[in-house]
Amino acid sequence: MSRFHPRRRRAFAMAGAFAAATLVLGACTNGSDGGDDTSAAVGKSNTDNDKSGDTVTIGFSAPAADHGWMGAITKAAVAQADQYDDVELKVAEGTNDVNLQISQVETFINDKVDAIVLLPFDGAAMTSVARKAMDAGIIVVNVDREFDSPFAARTTVLGDNYGMGVSAGTFVCEDAAGATDKIVTEIAGIDSLPLTQDRSRGFKDALKSCGLKVSNRVAAEFTVESGEKAAANLLQAAPKIDYLWNHDDDQGVGVLAAINNADRDEFTMIGGAGSADVMESIRAGDSVLKATVVYPSTQAADGVKLARLLVQDKAMSDLAEIEVPRQLKLSAPVVTAENVDQYLPSAFRS
């Protein structure tokens, strides 16, 4: 240090302080960004069920937030829990390591939580530990990826993957208005996942009812990079397209980039999952995106709400039934420019 000239040392200190300030400010600005829009997505029920009851401790575990939709899942669950002063939510680290996720559930069991809301990385692999929790008298609410035993969860909240395909296909049919010569293409997600197969099956079935079929289909991997790659190939393969359904709005960022690079705008694109960015461009109407199909990112928030009701022995107030149902399958509505304002508040940021 002594070999530094004092003035130079001061200059170093100044530069260092400036750099530190930039980093800190940058980190803070980023942190406060986007934190607000998810709380708008979830709300209380506005019924007698909102009345504060016994404190409910809920353990929550989900896969790693390496995908916009998955990140939104946890954010919404936390925002939902924050709205109830009788809910204490313990959020375990998001992980794609089943061994670790199992130990998180074991920790919840040791802690004697009242309920566990679990979105498993792999439904089958988490079944036995969920069963263990149920046996220990803890209410387990399974979200999105189903266990393979009915004894492992009290209630299951699921998105409708087949329904997403049907919604997208029906939108195409209505838009085509009877024409059977339209070229329909599809960019799927990870092809080996049952959920992707369900979506594609629903799409195919809906198109069949109006005499259309998928002429080109490629699969991506739910990431921006894979979306760009798959779309670039698809656009090469199909010089003229009328409709393009992309299963996932996160990979859709890459798909749109490829479309812009190829300078194509002769077709109508339909998204999937329902990210806020996609809904905003649907509202603006300045791109090929004309619609998207919602796959609710508030599933785990619903799981938290249901877990609270179950522990407090309450029922769903709009049903005549006095118990919380065993399974809820959420709807997969189509969002277009006409109804986008209704869905935008509950959309997630990718």
Binding site: N96, D97, V98, N99, I102, F121, D122, A124, A125, M126, T127, S128, V129
Partner: peptide
């Protein structure tokens, strides 16, 4: 050990282990 914990075998087991 992992098979016993998860009661499954999967190609995603042991990612980044």
């Amino acid at each position: 050990m992992l098979m016993s914990r998860t009661t499954t075998g999967s190609s995603t087991h042991g990612t980044q282990l």
